[in-house]
């Protein structure tokens, strides 16, 4: 601090605390709503303090689902989201790290063509090519299965760039030493490059897990069977019928479960997360 201003420091604390309160307020209300029964929420003003129906609500949504929207049990949706998020994160990392390895460590014709083809995907998010991509996926029989949820989303220019950037910073002496010791390209990759990339992989995993978990438009397009719904899109289906039946306590309990895994990942792996954020935006 430049000057010692106790009053200024106090003011800073107050402003930041106020910000934290605003940011946390919606989640608090969601939590409170998830702990009451349906009747308590329909009598305004709605409660601001938790009730006693939390475990009951959780049991209902996890194993039976929300009746008014005829949804699948939320446990199934959570499993689907988990499969999708882990599949996307692992798939992206796997295919980008080998592609980046080829582009940085080998000299071959068409290298730059491939690089630019991968680069272009940065400018083609799902949102701008909705219908044709849907047609491709349906022609490949990938509707309503995990393959369709995962594979079309695992090509990633950002991940390839990140690894390319990192490989370029690895000293050439390591490669030379490996070659002198007689290591071939795959041996070098497994025994030298992969262990060195550990931090980048962890950072990328956090970012991509959240990306995969929070996918919305994509599962909405390609799943019509409830057994493949992910939890994030499941919520919106509940919202769109909720006004008729108003089981808000169950919808909010589902919302709580939908945000819990990614939030826990971000907080538990905060260092890798911040690193990943900063690096993928370079």
């Amino acid at each position: 601090m430049v000057e010692n201003r106790p009053f200024g420091t106090l003011l800073s604390h107050l402003v930041v605390l106020f910000g934290v309160l605003i940011v946390c307020f919606p989640v608090w209300i969601t939590f409170v709503a998830a702990t009451h029964d349906q009747a308590a929420l329909l009598r305004p003003p709605i409660p601001l303090w938790p009730g006693s129906h939390f475990f009951e609500n959780m049991e209902t949504i996890l194993f039976a689902g929300v009746r008014s929207s005829r949804s699948a049990p939320v446990a199934v949706m959570l499993l689907n989201s988990l499969v999708m998020a882990v599949g996307i994160a692992v798939g992206k990392i796997a295919i980008s790290i080998i592609a980046a390895y080829a582009i940085v460590y080998f000299h071959f014709p068409l290298r730059m063509v491939f690089f630019w083809m991968i680069f272009i995907t940065l400018m083609l998010p799902v949102e701008v090519r909705i219908l044709p991509t849907f047609e491709v996926v349906s022609n490949l029989n990938l509707l309503n299965n995990y393959g369709g949820l995962i594979i079309p989303l695992i090509a990633s220019a950002t991940a390839t760039f990140l690894f390319r950037q990192f490989f370029l910073s690895v000293p050439d002496e390591l490669t030379e030493a490996a070659r002198i010791d007689g290591a071939g390209p795959m041996r070098f990759f497994w025994d030298v490059l992969l262990p060195l990339s550990r931090n980048s992989i962890a950072a990328l995993f956090v970012i991509q897990f959240i990306y995969g978990w929070n996918q919305y438009l994509w599962p909405l397009l390609i799943t019509t069977e409830e057994s493949y719904y992910t939890v994030v899109m499941g919520i919106s289906r509940m919202l769109n019928v909720v006004d008729a039946a108003a089981e808000w306590n169950l919808v909010m309990a589902t919302a709580l479960l939908a945000m819990l895994p990614p939030v826990v990942v971000v907080i538990a792996m905060q260092r890798q997360f911040v690193r990943g954020l900063v690096e993928t935006e370079k």
Partner: peptide, 15 residues
Amino acid sequence: LIWPYAVAPAVAGAL
């Protein structure tokens, strides 16, 4: 302050 990033836009909308 960092965690709302992890909340999906659709879920934020629900909240």
